Simulated scan of single mutants.
Amino acid sequence: MARMRRGLVHAMAWSLATGAAVTLSWWGVHTVMAGTAYDPPRALPITADRPATTPPSVASQASSTRRPKASPTPSPTQPPASVAAPSRKPPAPPSRSPSPAPSTPSAGRGEVKSYTVDGGRVAFDIGTSSAELVSATPASGWQMQVWKQPTYIRVTFSRDGKEIDVFCTWHDHAPMVQIDER
C-alpha cells in the first residue's frame, strides 16, 4: 500500500511539474509573439474629411505590424539594386499604370496620393522636393515590407513568389511614383 501511495505521489508530482512547464512555455511564447508580424494588419482610412497631413505618431501606426516606438522602420544598409545607381536612360514605363485616388492638398507640404496594386494600397504625401509615406496596407494574403531612405521610399508586396514594388523617388528630380511587378 505504501508503495502504491508513493507511486501515486510521484505521478501527481510529475503531472503538476509537466503542467507548470507547459503553461510557462505557452506564456513565454505568447509574450514573445505578441506584437510581431503575426498580428492582423491595421490600416488607417484615407478619407476626404480627414486632414491630409498626418502627425508622425499616426503615420507610424499605419504599418501592418506593431513595432516598438523607439525603433524606426528598418532600412537596408544598401539600397536595392534597382534604385542604387541613377540610370542615364529614361526609366521603362511601369508594367501597370498607377491608379491614383482622389487627393487632398495638405497644409504647405504637398498632396496625398494613393496607389492601389494587386498586393495592397500605398499612400504618399508628395511635396515639391520630397515625399512621406502616409500608409501602406497589404491585401489579404500578401506580405509587405517598407524601406525608407533620404531619397526614396520603397514598399514591396509579396505573395507566392510574386513581388510588386511601389517606388517613390526624388533624387535630383521632383518626387515620382513607379510600380514594378515581377
Rank of each mutant, 00 (worst) to 15 (best):
Leu133His: 01
Asp180Ala: 11
Thr23Asn: 07
Arg42His: 12
Ala20Tyr: 05
Thr31Asp: 08
His30Gly: 05
Thr169Arg: 10
Ser64Gly: 07
Gln143Thr: 12
Gln149Glu: 12
Thr104Glu: 11
Ser95Phe: 09
His10Gly: 03
Pro45Thr: 04
Pro79Gln: 02
Pro90Thr: 00
Pro79Thr: 00
Ser103Tyr: 11
Phe167Tyr: 15
Val177Trp: 03
Arg50Asn: 01
Ala107Tyr: 12
Gln143Trp: 14
Met12Asn: 01
Pro93Ser: 10
Ala13Pro: 04
Ala70Ser: 07
Ser140Trp: 11
Ile179Arg: 00
Thr156Pro: 07
Lys89Ala: 02
Pro55Ser: 03
Thr36Arg: 14
Asp165Gly: 01
Asp118Ser: 05
His173Cys: 10
Trp27His: 03
Arg96Trp: 10
Val177Tyr: 03
Ile153Ser: 07
Ser25Cys: 11
Val22Asn: 00
Ser103Asn: 06
Gln178Phe: 14
Val166Phe: 09
Val134Ser: 03
Arg66Lys: 04
Val166Pro: 04
Glu181Asn: 00
Val29Asn: 02
Pro41Val: 13
Ser63Asp: 10
His30Glu: 10
Thr77Asp: 02
Ser106Ala: 07
Ile46His: 01
Ala136Ser: 01
Pro150Ser: 08
Ala20Lys: 00
Glu111Met: 06
Glu132Val: 01
Tyr115Ile: 10
Pro150Ile: 09
Pro150Tyr: 10
Ala139Trp: 11
Ala81Thr: 11
Arg5Ser: 03
Leu24Thr: 13
Cys168Ile: 15
Pro94Ala: 10
Lys148Thr: 01
Val9Gln: 12
Thr137Ser: 14
Ile164Ser: 02
Ala85Leu: 13
Thr137Ile: 02
Pro56Glu: 02
Ala101Pro: 06
Ala52Ser: 07
Val83Glu: 12
Pro80Gly: 01
Ile46Cys: 01
Pro72His: 02
Ala62Thr: 15
Thr169Ala: 04
Leu24Cys: 08
Ala21His: 12
Thr54Ile: 15
Val155Glu: 05
Cys168Phe: 11
Ser95Asn: 14
Val32Asp: 02
Gly119Thr: 01
Thr23Leu: 12
Ala52Gly: 03
Ser130Gln: 13
Ala21Thr: 15
Asp39Tyr: 04
Ala92Lys: 12
Ile126Gln: 03
Pro93Ala: 12
Pro175Val: 09
Gln143Gly: 02
Ala107Phe: 14
Cys168Ser: 08
Thr73Met: 05
Trp26Gln: 09
Thr23Ser: 10
Met12Asp: 05
Ser87His: 10
His171Cys: 04
Gln178Met: 13
Gln78Lys: 11
Glu163Ser: 04
